[in-house]
Simulated assay, not measured.
Amino acid sequence: MNSLVSRALFTAGAAGGAMLLAAGVAAAHVTVVAPGAEQGGYSVLTFRVPTESETASTTKLTVTLPDLKSARTTPLQGWTSVVEKDPTSKLAKSVTWTADPGVGVAPGQFQQFELSAGPLPEQDEVSFPAAQTYSDGEVVNWDQAVGADGAEPDKPAPTLTLAAASGDDHSHDAGGATTSEETETTASGTDDTARWLGGIGLVLGALGAALGLGAMVRSRRS
């Protein structure tokens, strides 16, 4: 019995160790997450960038984008972001975050870079090849695809699995912005409502003034 229990514990420990090791390896990769991201929709993409070097800091990250209509970065203290667009199509081709002098992701640390983007491609998966630059000049390219046998490469490209489109209106970006046509329609409706309310207020004000004046006249007569 003791032998069986020992073997079971050893097997469970080995499996747990393997899982932790795999998680550690995956955590060392540049990855992208976007809960609820849908095909053809907008989402906030979060790129998680760990520093694998033991002697240098991460000072720059460039991510290739799949020709996106909208790409907006979140302000990050100590970092400057630039979205590169095609001069003809005006579609976003890539985004680069560069650390200010004296700033970087030190060894043993990681940083998250956020990007509000869309519409996302209408496909099951989308990859975002990335180039990670260190303070000593080393550049690590995370751009390898998963092999035909499903084996993960040494430097996999950050990949996002997209859910099928739910049929909701995708004209809004992840930050809640609407298209110019929707904005104009909403503004027009709001303006009309304001005018009606303003007109009603003027009528009620005039009526109140008239009643007050009548009461004053009657008071003086009495």
Rank of each mutant, 00 (worst) to 15 (best):
W142K: 05
A22S: 10
T193G: 07
F110P: 08
T186A: 12
P119M: 05
R48V: 13
L68F: 03
T55S: 13
T58I: 15
G175I: 00
L4D: 15
W196F: 08
V95Y: 03
F128S: 03
A215F: 03
T80S: 13
Y134E: 08
A27I: 03
G208W: 03
G189N: 11
L21S: 10
L197A: 09
A106K: 15
A117T: 07
S188M: 05
S135Y: 13
G198D: 10
T190V: 12
D86W: 05
G40Y: 09
D191Q: 13
V82N: 09
M19S: 07
A23I: 06
K69S: 12
L65Q: 06
E184F: 11
P129A: 01
A209E: 00
G208M: 02
V32N: 03
F110L: 11
T183V: 04
D143H: 12
T190H: 08
Q77A: 14
G212R: 05
H29K: 11
P35H: 08
Y134Q: 11
W97Q: 02
E38T: 11
S94V: 01
W196D: 14
P129I: 00
A27W: 09
H170L: 01
T80C: 02
G208E: 01
K93I: 03
L202T: 14
A151F: 05
R221T: 04
R72T: 15
K155S: 07
V203L: 13
A177R: 13
L211M: 04
D169N: 15
G199E: 09
H170D: 14
A117W: 01
F110T: 06
G40A: 05
A163F: 05
T46Y: 00
N2K: 07
T186P: 00
P156N: 07
T64K: 10
V146K: 13
D100G: 05
G104Y: 11
T178C: 04
A117L: 06
V32A: 06
W97N: 06
A12C: 01
N141E: 10
P158F: 05
P87M: 04
V126D: 05
D100I: 04
L45C: 04
A165K: 15
E184G: 02
P153D: 03
R48L: 07
G40V: 11
D192V: 07
S43W: 00
P153T: 02
L21Q: 10
P158M: 07
A145I: 07
F113P: 08
T193K: 13
S81T: 06
D86F: 03
V82G: 00
Y134A: 12
S180A: 15
V25P: 00
V49A: 03
D168S: 10
A117Y: 00
A177N: 15
A174W: 02
G201E: 02
K60V: 01
T73G: 04
L21F: 08
V105Y: 08
V33Q: 11
V44Q: 08
T190P: 00
A22E: 12
T159M: 11
K90L: 08
L68N: 08
T159D: 08
A157Q: 12
L76R: 15
A56S: 12
T62D: 00
A215E: 09
G104V: 09
S81C: 04
Y42V: 00
